[in-house]
């Protein structure tokens, strides 16, 4: 029984069957990658996990509880944090404030009317955010406006914001999309480090095979909305069906 259990999930957009009967089980404390060619339904599937989309059929269970019908903020409070393809951060706020907000959300829940207490008096939040900035190697940028960070730093900040909530499941949607090679490698190292230091399950959607094979313990290959195979990276590399559907030249090279 995995921490995330997906059963018979189907989703149709008008005439397009985006997902057809997806079954998937993400084991606790593993790194599970979902790969597939463009239009395979990877992002649609991910959106079904976080409450952005509700599948037409099937069930999505997180830690024994259904996530379907819950709003994104409720699902986050259950312990699922999501990193977006383009970093979603609070651009108008400072890096430190960006890091403090998830700490508040973790401590106080979805809404807290603390209009007359002052941010600067919240010592525990400051300590936690500061520690997270140090972990992310961004402590020197704490006063910068988040919008002025480089793409790679924005990604680090977003991952740090998600981790500061101590999520049980971290979802990454193409975390290295549009990154230079050096930034991609930094992100891989960061994720490896996170995996080593924390009890956390990571589900990752990725295009870049280099990233997938450096990180994943299990890989599910999605094609035309249905899972083709699920196996270890080594077996996936040599799998004839996968080569045919997706890897092709990458595996040959």
């Amino acid at each position: 029984m995995g921490i995330l259990e997906v059963k018979n999930v189907g989703k149709r957009f008008g005439g397009l069957q985006a997902l057809g009967n997806v079954n998937l089980s993400v084991a606790e404390n593993s790194v599970h990658a979902i790969i597939g060619p463009n239009g395979a339904g990877k992002s649609t599937l991910l959106n079904c996990f976080v409450g952005k989309l509700i599948p037409d059929t099937g069930s999505v269970m997180f830690d024994g509880q259904s996530v379907l019908g819950r709003k994104p903020f409720e699902i986050n409070q259950m312990g699922i944090s999501r990193v977006f393809q383009t970093p979603e951060i609070f651009g108008d706020l400072s890096v430190m404030e960006n890091m403090m907000i998830p700490c508040f959300a973790k401590r106080d829940g979805a809404f807290e009317m603390n209009a007359l207490s002052s941010v600067s008096s919240q010592r525990d939040i400051h300590e936690k955010a500061e520690q997270m900035l140090v972990d992310m190697n961004m402590a020197d940028k704490r006063h910068m406006n988040a919008a002025s960070l480089s793409r790679g730093d924005k990604r680090r900040l977003e991952i740090g914001m998600c981790l500061s909530q101590d999520p049980r499941l971290l979802l990454l949607d193409e975390p290295t999309a549009g990154m230079a090679r050096a930034d991609t490698n930094n992100t891989i190292d960061l994720l490896k480090q996170i995996k080593e230091e924390r009890d956390i399950t990571i589900a990752i959607i990725e295009h870049d095979m280099h990233v997938v094979f450096s990180l994943a313990e299990r890989i599910t290959v999605l094609a035309q909305g249905t899972p083709l195979v699920e196996d270890t990276p080594d077996n996936i590399k040599g799998h004839p069906k996968v080569r045919e559907a997706y890897l092709g030249e990458t595996a040959a090279a």
Binding site: S81, L93, S118, I125
Partner: peptide, 25 residues
């Protein structure tokens, strides 16, 4: 200067991130 005020500025900045950070806007 309160956490509440910071949340309001966060609403202005990025509602999507608010929702996916477990906050009800």
């Amino acid at each position: 200067r309160s956490p509440f005020g910071m949340m309001l500025r966060a609403v202005k900045s990025n509602q999507q991130r608010m929702n996916y950070t477990g906050l009800n806007t």
